[in-house]
Amino acid sequence: MSGLYSLRDADRSVKLAALLFMLVLGYAYIFAFFMVKQYAGLSPTDVATTYVPQRVEASQLPEASKSTTRALDLSSMEPEHHHVDTQLLIQDSHIHIMIYAIIAALQTLIVLGLGWSAWWRDLVILTAFGSGALDFAGQWLMKAGIGGFAWLTIASGWLMTAVYVVVLLGTLRAVFAKNETRGASA
């Protein structure tokens, strides 16, 4: 057996805790998706608009002010785009990165009991921790004015989802599969 323990052979309470953790985490991820969609958007342009600072750089401004005018339909007026300033990003970072690490650690506890091969186990663990770190690396790079890094934040979000799906499937398999080891020794 590879790993630290076998979830398949573990006590029913351990299986219950692992399964419920993954299901409730998925429940939270559904709302996380809607929150991201609402506040930051899902496209690179929207994400960059949320994080890239709207600095007034005198050197980059035209000499004279320029204006454009267009008709406005108040019923379809778009809400102001949510903007994450540096203060808010510091606040978001210190909470989110820590929670990402805790979630990755708890997922790792499950991964260690799934009987996966060492390379696959390590890859999933690395991705679980790395995706959270890269999510905020992308946000800080955008905050530094490099809007092109929106893709990094978006990609790390999908990586996080991929890790979740892989660990959930592994958990369901371990919890609900027939216990061959115990069955064979009985």
């Binding site: 401004l61 000499e63 004279a64 002010s65 320029k66 454009t68 005018t69």
Partner: peptide, 16 residues
Amino acid sequence: SSFFLKKVEIGKRDLS
């Protein structure tokens, strides 16, 4: 009865 949006991009002189 009708509404318009005028978006002004600030220039150096006006910023000053």
